[in-house]
Amino acid sequence: MEAQTPSDALMMRSKNICVLFSYDMGTFDRYWEGSLLRSNETIATVDRNTVLPMAAIGILDNLNFYVSLPYVSTDSSEPNGGKFTGARGFQDIGFALKYRAIRTNLGKGTFTALATAGFSTPFTNYLSDYRPYSIGSGAPEFSLRAISQYQWNNGFYVRGALAHLWRGYTEAERDYYYNNGSYYTAWMDVPNAWTYEGIIGKWFFDTSLKLELSYMSLTSTSGDDIRAYNAAQPTNKVEFDRLGFSAQYFIKSIKGLGVVAYHNRVVDGRNTPKLSNTGFGITYQFNVIKKQTDENDAQ
């Protein structure tokens, strides 16, 4: 999740490919019902594990393409009062194009501005109206993200990103639902959302270790609240603030190989689990044309 991703400021040179394979362990035992933080013995503690293969492809030095396909599995701890079975399966296949529009020396560092356009859509016919076990929102999503970063020559950097997510509709397995009123259809409108990210980080040891602290916020532009002691549904107005820490290390002795580890915590929210997640991954970058692999084009 923290290698070259659609949301960071790293670019790969043309004809380079980076593959990422990561394992993410998420868990929560409380969630926000509207703005009320509560526990619920019906679901007890819910685990949500994700295996994420992703590939980043350098088309041009300033244009990268990404493809990803997470496999998600969810389950409740025992004992729980609901006896619901978890869910598992391939979630949404995602594609993204990241374009670096500006990279210029400015003062004692480098200023970079990038834009990413992403599209994802369910890869399998999973049940989206099965919260909190559903593996995804079940709706196509189109996103536009603007990213800017300033990195000092000593390796310290700050980055900000703003994205808008347009979500489509997901089909529930019922032909009527309540969303502050009646809906006589199986189609649920998944709310659009804004995300804001702020990151501070630093490179160490000749750009072989990168440490980052991140803040991310998501705000849905519409939607309803989870009702008392009731299950969430895809129409909910989800909001959260999340803090995170990540480390990425490029192993000098094996060219192109890197490892990544991170931990994130949702600290405030609405209609969303108070999720903590920890992940580990390996990245491998290679040049498909030249024999010799390029150094990671970090700044």
């Binding site: 194009l97 509709y169 009646s182 809906y183 259809t185 409108d189």
Partner: peptide, 19 residues
Amino acid sequence: LLALVTIILASCEKDTPRY
């Protein structure tokens, strides 16, 4: 990019009747 945005935004408005 422009073509992608237009296609995606235009293709998916659905009618969700309230009655």
